[in-house]
Computed example of a mutant assay.
Amino acid sequence: MEIGLQIPDFGFPGGTAALGRNLAGVARDADDAGFAYLSVMDHFFQIPSVGPSDRPMLEAYTTLGFLAAHTRRAKLFTYVTGAIYRFAREGGHHARRVVRRTGHARHRGPRARLSVSVHLGTTTRDRAGFWTERFSRPPGRGNREGRNQLPGDLGAAAEPGQSSRVVLKRHCEAEGRDYAEITKTVYHYLDIGPAGEKTSGFLAEARRLHGLGVQAVIGPFPGGADQRRIEIFAKDIIPAVKELA
C-alpha cells in the first residue's frame, strides 16, 4: 500500500509573500519522506469544508508544474479535476502540458500523467439553451500506456467496500478494461493527531482498507501539512504500509 498527500489549503504562515517558499518546502519534505502521490484540488475558489472562499487558491495545473520543480519521485495529479467547470479537452491540454514539463521518468513514464483518454464528439444546445459537449472513448482506443498510474477512487473513506468494487468491475467489463491494472485508491484524512498520538489507529485503518482492496490512501493533514507529521509518516507509517503490498 502507498500513501499520498493532498494539499488543499494554501493559507501558509507569512501570507502570499511566503506561499511559494512554504509550498516548495512541503513538497520537498513529502517527496523525501516517501509519499507516493502529491496532489492539489482543481478549484477556482476555496471550498467551505476547507476554509472561506477568499482564502488563497492556486490554479491546479500551474501548481503541478511548480511542484514538479521541487520533487523527484512523487506522482503528481489533481484530486480531482471538475468536469462541471472545465471542458474535457481543456483539461487534457493542461495535463499534457504538465507531462511535457515534468520530464522526470518514474516506472514506465513521466510523473504527471493524463489518466483518462477521451475523444471529442459533438457540441449541441440542450433544451435549456446551454451548450454542451459530448465525449466518448471508442472501443479499443485510447492511451493504455500508464493508465493504471493514477488512481481509480473507490469512494468516500468512511465505508469503501464491496459495492464500490462491484461498480468498478462492472465498468471495466463494459469497457473491456482489465480491473487488475487499475490502482484502487481512497480519499482519507491523514489524521494521526498533532504529535502522532493517533498513529496506531491510522495504521489499523490502513490495514482494514487494504483488506478491502485499497492500494493507496490519499488525503490531507487536518489543519494543513507540517514537517513534524510528515516525519512521523516517513518513520512509522510509510514503511509499515509498504509491507501490506
Rank of each mutant, 00 (worst) to 15 (best):
E90I: 08
G91I: 02
G91V: 00
G91H: 00
G92R: 01
H93K: 10
R96L: 15
R96F: 11
V98Q: 04
V99K: 10
R100L: 11
R101W: 13
G103T: 07
G103M: 05
G103V: 03
H104T: 15
H104A: 15
H104I: 15
A105M: 14
R106V: 15
H107K: 12
G109D: 08
P110R: 03
P110C: 05
A112M: 07
A112H: 03
R113C: 10
R113N: 12
L114V: 13
S115D: 06
S115G: 15
S115K: 03
S115M: 11
V116S: 09
V116I: 13
S117I: 04
V118D: 05
T122V: 11
T122Y: 08
T123W: 07
T123L: 09
T124H: 06
T124N: 00
R125C: 09
R125L: 10
D126T: 12
D126R: 02
D126W: 02
R127W: 05
G129R: 02
G129M: 04
W131E: 15
W131K: 08
E133W: 08
E133T: 14
E133D: 15
F135M: 12
F135V: 13
P138S: 08
P138F: 06
P138C: 09
P139W: 01
G140R: 05
G142K: 06
R144S: 07
R144N: 00
R144I: 03
E145R: 13
E145D: 13
